[in-house]
């Protein structure tokens, strides 16, 4: 056996993270689109699971995948329409309510970057993975999102 990484059975990983992933996707996409993205997120996770090089912070890992799926989804479906989640279908108060409303007018990539940075405290490298871009591009998307928010605030 050459395997050195200890991976828990996917079942335990799935049970631990499925609720968080769905909540995250609902914030990014609204309730309807979140359902398809949920399945895609865990299928991608399942494909990547055997190749995972570490077992740390699997929560950040799977939220990164979810964000990636959400960004792909938005690009494919509605490339120019601003991202407004389906607020009526969220059934409980959100800890990141303020951030969600604040970022509703941002373009999808900037919104995802700001959300992951300030809502989930991910590093720019992790956000870069999520957005399929470099660390620098992730930093840029985040700061241009923040600048855009400040501009709107002053208006």
């Amino acid at each position: 056996m050459m395997e050195v990484v200890i991976r828990q059975p996917f079942e335990r990983f799935y049970l631990e993270h499925r609720d968080g992933v769905l909540a995250h996707l609902r914030r990014l996409l609204g309730a309807q689109a979140a359902e398809d993205a949920f399945q895609e997120t865990f299928l991608r996770a399942l494909r990547a699971y055997p190749k995972l090089k570490h077992a740390d912070n699997l929560r950040a890992w799977v939220l990164t995948i979810a964000t990636n799926v959400a960004v792909d989804d938005r690009r494919r479906l509605r490339p120019q329409v601003p991202d407004v989640p389906d607020i009526a279908t969220l059934d409980e108060p959100l800890p990141r309510e303020e951030l969600r409303e604040l970022t509703a007018g941002l373009p999808p990539t900037e919104r995802a970057a700001v959300f992951l940075r300030y809502g989930y405290d991910l590093s720019y490298a992790q956000i870069g993975d999520a957005l399929g871009s470099s660390t620098d591009a992730a930093r840029q998307a985040t700061s241009s999102g923040v600048r855009r928010l400040r501009r709107e605030e002053k208006r």
Partner: peptide, 15 residues
Amino acid sequence: ELDHLARTFGARVLR
């Protein structure tokens, strides 16, 4: 058994 299966057959063990 879940852990045993993950070690023996691979970690993608799912109910």
